[in-house]
Structure formats: C-alpha cells, structure tokens
Write a protein that binds this DNA or RNA. Structure first.
Length: 426
DNA sequence: TCTGGGGTCCTAGGACCC
DNA sequence: TCTGGGGTCCTAGGACCC
C-alpha cells in the first residue's frame, strides 16, 4: 500500500460586488462611480462597489442610516433585480463549466471548481485564464482563490479580493502560517458571530491560532463543524465538493411589507400570494410538501406598538403541490395566529418535508388528482408565458396594498427584449 | 413492588452561509 | 418614516420503547 497523498486543488471563484457588477453591465456610466444595491423593500445595502466601500458604507446596513453619505457623495442607488442577477449568474456558471464539469455552484455569485488535474505549477496560471475568460465572455470581474481545501480556498479568495491580479494560490507553499496569521478569525468560513466571541475569549484571534490549536481542545469545546474547520485549515480536506444538485428540503417565500399591515384581509392576501409562489416553485422542481408553516410578525425594531411574532405549522395527511390546497391550509394557519391590533411588518410561508412528486402515488390517488395536476400544469404554463399571476386565485387579491417598495429599479429584464437598454451608434 | 438504563425518533431553536 | 430573503445542518431535550 502506498501513501502517496493525492492532494486536491480547489478553486473558489467569487464574483466581485456581484449585484453592482450586474447593474454596471448595462449602464457604463456608473462604471467608475460609487454604486450600491438595496435589498427588497429598499431596506438594506447588500452590494457595494469598491468606491462605495471606500466611502465607509457598510454591508447589511439599513439604507436610511447611510443616506447622508450616499447623497453627499452622489452614490448611485439601485433596488435589487433578482431575475437579472440570476440570468447573469447562469452565464458565469456556464462559462466556468468549460474548465471542468466538476463544479459546485455554491451561491448566486460563487462556485468551487476542481482543478486537481493541473500540476502545482500550472494551477495559478489556469486561475488567471479563468478570470480573464469570465470577464471577457460575461463582463463580470471575479476573484479566485486556489488551495487544498474549501476552507483554505476561501482564505485564498479573501486575499485575492484585495489584490490587483485577483488570483491567489496557496498550492505549493510549505508554510502558510504567516498568511493565516493575517486572516482574522471572524473572516474564516464557518466562524460566525457566536464562534468568534467564543474563540476570542479563548485567545484565538486569527486563522493561524485556530489551525494550531490542539485537536482535543477543539473537540471538547466545539462541535463537529468547529473541528472540521480546523482540520481544513491544516490542509486536510473534510468538506467535499458537491457536484450534483440535490433536491431542496424546504421552500420559503416571505416578504416585508412596503407599508405596515393591520387588516386581516390584507394579511390573507399576502399569505395567499406567497403560498401560490411557493406552490409554483415546488411544482417546477417536481416536489410535494407534507407540512405548511405560516408566520407573521411586527417589527423587532419598533416595539412601541408592541411586539408580536407567531407561527403555525399544519401537517397534511397526504403530500401535495396543489395550489388550492396549499393556500387553503395556509389561510387556516394564519387564522390560528392572527391577532388584532398589531402593525405587521413581515409574513411568510414555508413548505417543508419536501419529497419527490413521482413517489407520491398512493392508495388514495384518484382520477380527481389527475385532473387537479393537469389544471396546475396549465396554470403554470400560462403564467410562464404571460407573466406570473396572470392566472391566480381570488383570495390572492388584486390591489396588493402591502406590496414591496422598489423605488430605484434599473428595470432591466434580460428576458424582455423591449426593456433592454438601447445602444445608439453614431 | 421495584422505576434504572439505554436506545430511537422527532422537533424547535440556534448558528451558520450567501 | 424607513432595518432583506432563502437555505442547511447540528444539538438538546422530550416522548416513547423495552
């Protein structure tokens, strides 16, 4: 038996200021200017250009708190346009797949790519190649980190973000301690707020200190996730590349309201709409749900009106993806938790215990089910062709007073030819 | 009558990620 | 006045069983 260790080489490709970069694609005027993109309801800042970061605008900060800096510095502001970002994301991922089909799409703007087939010497060059091709074909700038484990490639990526070249490889470096020493503990993948607090209390302030902490201490004082992170920092791969997309286990549709909602009727409309969206989503993925949760809450930031938050879960006797049934059940759940006299800020619907709809045939399946399935299919097809909610249920309402704010949308829809910006050649 | 010890399964809540 | 949305996994503790 030989002990020649097969070392992996994993690249993490991360799009720079992704939402901002997407907006810039279609709006060259904002290329060099400070730009931010806001979350739903224009609530928080969720993407910042480098120029905006330099101004001190913080990630996740409420928009109104940064408004002064924004106005003063003429920062360009956009409401988020998720269908645009999703579309660009697919283009980026398609481009990456040309380098290796062993890819894990980790989020809308990140992917892990297996580069183990390349030699230690080649791998950094390949990184540069990937970066320039993605930029050329999609217009999106990226940062690339390459290392032996996912956690280390995150570290490398973190460093690459600050470099002009945009590519950092830790492959072939004998002692990475001096590098890890400069990475703050809260910047390590898998170390969040709580763990940061705990580690700091125990004298661990950077990635090197965590890496060199004894196994027994980590095992005793944290859980499997904590020890996995430490192992990965040591270059021992514990978190595999997940190259096959597994079916999701739950589906949430939730929104904050554009205005506070007090009436039961409006809350009902919102819940009916979210239920319809969620049903459509799981149908498109051939899933059925066995359990429906509805939650409502008032703002946690303004309790002068009293805080109320509650949820209700109803289990179904037979798993379904039938909109009518899901809406009906969700409204029953809402009825059970609604209380008069509160200013509701947010509500949502969660479908859980999802499973494959093809395994859902049972003793009680009938011709009626078949008819309902066909009805759902034709609703989905119509809505796909003519826009969501062309066909809806009466309970979903038409006025939608509670709908989101979206003041600064660029209104770019890559699926709608007529809304694309025009280029005038002179 | 004694009510221990150990196993499984489920769930709510917490922590983390983007 | 105004503070996002959508996921996954782990764990502790309860219920139940023998």
């Amino acid at each position: 038996m030989s002990f020649t260790q097969y070392t992996k080489k994993i690249a993490l490709i991360d799009c720079n200021s992704f939402y901002v970069s997407c907006e810039r694609l279609f709006n060259p005027k904002i290329r060099k200017k400070p730009v931010v993109v806001l979350s739903n309801n224009d609530g928080c800042i969720i993407s910042r250009s480098n120029e905006a970061k330099t101004l001190g605008i913080k990630m996740g900060e409420p928009y109104f708190k940064e408004k002064e800096i924004i106005v003063k510095n003429n920062v360009q502001v956009f409401s988020s346009n998720y269908s645009l970002y999703g579309d660009i994301s697919r283009r980026v991922m398609r481009t990456l797949k040309r380098f290796n089909s062993d890819i894990e799409i980790y989020s809308i703007d990140e992917a892990f790519l297996d580069l183990s087939n390349y030699s230690d010497k080649e791998v950094e060059k390949v990184g540069h190649e990937i970066r320039s091709i993605v930029l050329k074909w999609t217009g999106i700038p990226t940062s690339i980190g390459i290392a032996k484990t996912k956690t280390l490639s995150k570290v490398a990526n973190h460093i690459a973000k600050k470099k002009q070249s945009g590519v950092v490889s830790l492959i072939g470096i004998k002692n990475i301690d001096p590098i890890l020493e400069k990475v703050e503990i809260n910047d390590v993948w898998g170390v969040g707020r709580q763990l940061t607090k705990f580690y700091q209390k125990n004298g661990i302030y950077n990635a090197k200190q965590l890496k060199n902490k004894s196994n027994s201490w980590i095992k005793k004082n944290s859980n499997v996730l904590g020890s996995r992170t430490a192992m990965e920092l040591r270059g021992i791969s514990c978190i595999d590349l997940e190259t096959t997309v597994s079916k999701r286990k739950s589906c949430v549709v939730s929104r904050s309201f554009g205005k506070r909602v007090e009436s039961f009727q409006q809350l009902k409309e919102a819940i009916a709409n979210y239920s319809l969206n969620a049903s459509e989503k799981i149908r498109s993925e051939s899933l059925v749900t066995k359990s429906i949760t509805v939650f409502i809450r008032t703002s946690p930031f303004q309790n002068r009106f009293g805080f109320y938050s509650n949820s209700k879960t109803i289990d179904l006797p037979i798993a379904t993806n039938n909109s009518i049934e899901i809406v009906k059940t969700a409204l029953n759940a809402l009825e059970a938790i609604f209380k008069n006299g509160y200013r509701y800020q947010k509500s949502g619907v969660m479908l859980s215990h999802l499973s494959d709809s093809s395994n859902n045939k049972n003793l009680f399946s009938s011709e009626k089910d078949e008819k309902i399935n066909n009805l759902m299919k034709s609703i989905d097809n119509t809505n796909y062709r003519y826009g969501r909610s062309t066909l809806s249920l009466a309970s979903a309402g038409v006025q939608k007073k509670w709908n989101m704010r979206k003041e600064y949308s660029s209104k770019i829809d890559t699926a709608d030819f007529y809304s694309l910006p025009k280029i005038i050649v002179t």
